[in-house]
Design a protein around this nucleic acid. Structure first.
Lengths: 202, 202
DNA sequence: CGACGAACTTACCCTGCGGTTACTTACCGT
DNA sequence: ACGGTAAGTAACCGCAGGGTAAGTTCGTCG
């Protein structure tokens, strides 16, 4: 047979196929959320069929977990390094922003996995997500406490709220970036620097 | 029959039942998002059965639209009034925050309807949501432009990004409030005032 | 050349969801 | 008393989505 070849192997080795599937799944999970994402759509986006995903990842949960680790792992490592450059000034926060933008540059939509509100509220996915959220929140919280203490505020709820605000602020900037894809990570860093200067100027 | 009475009217008049259903639906839509929310779960939360919802609201979309209007209508009216009190200082933003907190005090979870990413991307729901989003964005954008112009910045993308940040900041504060339900709206306003003062102090 | 395993697919099962039909109970005006 | 109408339900339908079984093609190694 010359044409056809609708079934049977296409000669793509497993690790490469897995990366294609993960990339497609991250896009789909980011766009629709865990609950609304469809496995057959992910398969179509990856150019293969549904059972291959199950053979490689076991279940929808397994695929989602793989995507989550792939996205959050590198991001958190970078963030933990960048946090060392943050002191108690507002302006020094730019280092954390830079780490986020650079980590996300290959696939910015990945960010939305971290704030997906449709994932299950218990089970291994919830556990992994809470663990990542705990680690990022701990990073942000230590910065918030330092910041407030330097200004004479010690209320722990104030620190908690400021942490939430700071994390939400990063979220907003990344989402804005998603809607302006022509901007590079370096553009974003410069823009944030300008805005921080403007706000803290009075 | 003394016990039982599993079918037949329970004597609750329609307007009252509708309010119960809307309250239950807002909670469920807020918690799971449009796509993942289940009509039978909403019915169970409201203490009735699924067909009654269809009799009163026609469809899942109809129920969602009713919830959206019920939530967003009052909030936007309040916001438009409050925006008149906002000048080009950072501190005056507290008036907008106060309007949001007070409007949400009866049912804070309603906020999450406005940022539901799982709603359909076309049709009447998308149209209504885009209209509300356009109105809120217009409010926030006018404030951002005034703010930046007063500080010598005129880049329209800067204004767009700052608008996104401001809206995300409000979002973060409301979400933090959802996790600290013992706080009143007045508590939130005071806390925000403290934090704004701290950040703008240097 | 033959056969074994890895890469793939078609066709299916089953649960759960949005939506509907047909029925039951209670209230209320005359 | 009684009948019309509003309030309310159990049981069903079609379909979409997660998950599976069994089979097909291709590279590769003796």
């Amino acid at each position: 047979m010359s044409s056809g070849a609708l079934v049977g192997t296409k000669g793509v080795p497993r690790p490469e196929r897995e990366q294609q599937i993960i990339a497609a799944a991250v896009d789909e999970f980011a766009a629709r959320g865990y609950a609304a994402a469809s496995m057959v759509v992910i398969a179509r986006r990856a150019g293969i069929s549904k059972p291959l995903i199950y053979q490689y990842f076991g279940s929808k949960d397994g695929l989602y977990l793989t995507c989550l680790h792939s996205v959050a792992g590198g991001l958190l490592d970078r963030l933990e390094v960048a946090e060392l450059s943050v002191d108690d000034s507002v302006a020094s926060r730019i280092h954390a922003l830079q780490a986020v933008f650079e980590a996300l540059e290959p696939q910015p939509s990945a960010w939305q996995l971290l704030y997906d509100t449709t994932k299950p509220s218990d089970g291994p996915i919830a556990a992994a997500a809470q663990d990542y959220q705990r680690r990022t929140a701990a990073l942000a919280a230590s910065g918030s406490e330092r910041f407030l203490r330097a200004r004479g505020l010690t209320d722990s709820l104030d620190a908690s709220a400021l942490t939430a605000v700071w994390m939400g602020l990063v979220d907003s900037l990344v989402l804005w970036w998603l809607h302006h894809p022509q901007e590079t990570a370096a553009d974003m860093v410069q823009r944030c620097y300008r805005l921080i200067s403007a706000v803290t100027a009075g």
